[in-house]
């Protein structure tokens, strides 16, 4: 038993040490994320506002190609009504075809369509942005070691370059970006979006909302996962206890205690 505990300590240290590797020298800005923790859930209002920020600010350069319009109405997400999601979809023109003449055509998007893409492909995206590709945002939160804290901090991390740091044209200084130089200018400014629910659109508010939305985009089943996890672990603990006592009962038949 003692050895087992020693082993557990070693294992935890071992696995825990890997997080040191991904920790940056700069500490990220901290905020309360409603979806963290064992019983974490998304804040619906934040998701809806976050979608608005993505749609009105980010989507002109950043695609989100693995998310579909119907996801906006599904449980566990922003939970727009089906009518609202349909209307959102219909406001975008997507390519379809070929038609009977063999040509591609555009039509309003349906719920079953994936999100509209600002650029046809990566090369087009690079060409339009001075050679820098605005990454697709479907799983961006999972694709960065710092996760939501990193993205949130980055959005709030634009500052004047310190003395001695020279920036080329089209390059900006960001405190939290890997290498501190980023090709995206500060995307958010106060009031750039007018929230439908009346919340004040400060840069901090928008950063938090859009990051929450990005977390959902990357992990749409997060809430189910947490709920199922809780039930699974409670169930396993109960069964473990039952099996433990069954084991003791069976082994009591053997003289030597093991």
């Amino acid at each position: 038993m003692k050895n087992f505990i020693n082993f557990l300590i070693i294992t935890i240290f071992f696995f825990g040490s890997f997080n040191l590797h991904s920790a940056e020298k700069v500490e990220y800005l901290k905020t309360n994320w409603s979806f963290k923790g064992l019983f974490g859930k998304f804040d619906r209002g934040a998701l809806q506002r976050g979608y608005q920020v993505y749609n009105e600010v980010c989507s002109s350069c950043h695609s989100m190609k693995y998310v579909s319009y119907r996801n906006l109405a599904e449980k566990g997400g922003p939970e727009f009504s089906e009518a609202e999601a349909k209307a959102i979809a219909a406001s975008f023109e997507v390519t379809d075809g070929p038609n009977a003449d063999g040509e591609m055509f555009t039509r309003p998007a349906k719920l079953s369509d994936k999100f509209w893409k600002p650029y046809e492909n990566i090369k087009a995206a690079e060409a339009a942005n001075g050679g820098a590709y605005p990454p697709d945002m479907s799983v961006l939160v999972k694709a960065r070691g710092g996760g939501v804290d990193y993205i949130y901090s980055l959005l709030l991390g634009y500052e004047d370059a310190p003395v001695g740091v020279n920036l080329d044209d089209g390059v900006y200084y960001n405190k939290y970006m890997y290498g501190n130089k980023i090709r995206m200018s500060a995307p958010l400014s106060e009031g750039i979006v007018e929230y439908g629910d009346g919340t004040k659109a400060t840069v901090e508010q928008m950063s938090k909302d859009v990051t929450t939305f990005l977390m959902w985009a990357a992990e749409p089943h997060l809430e189910s996962r947490h709920q199922m996890g809780f039930k699974a672990i409670v169930y396993l603990i109960i069964l473990t206890i039952l099996v433990y006592f069954s084991m003791k009962r069976i082994w009591s038949r053997v003289e030597t205690e093991v």
């Binding site: 396993l236 473990t240 099996v243």
Partner: peptide, 8 residues
């Protein structure tokens, strides 16, 4: 039963 307990 012992393997079962450990497995759980």
């Amino acid at each position: 039963i012992k393997d079962g307990f450990a497995l759980l």
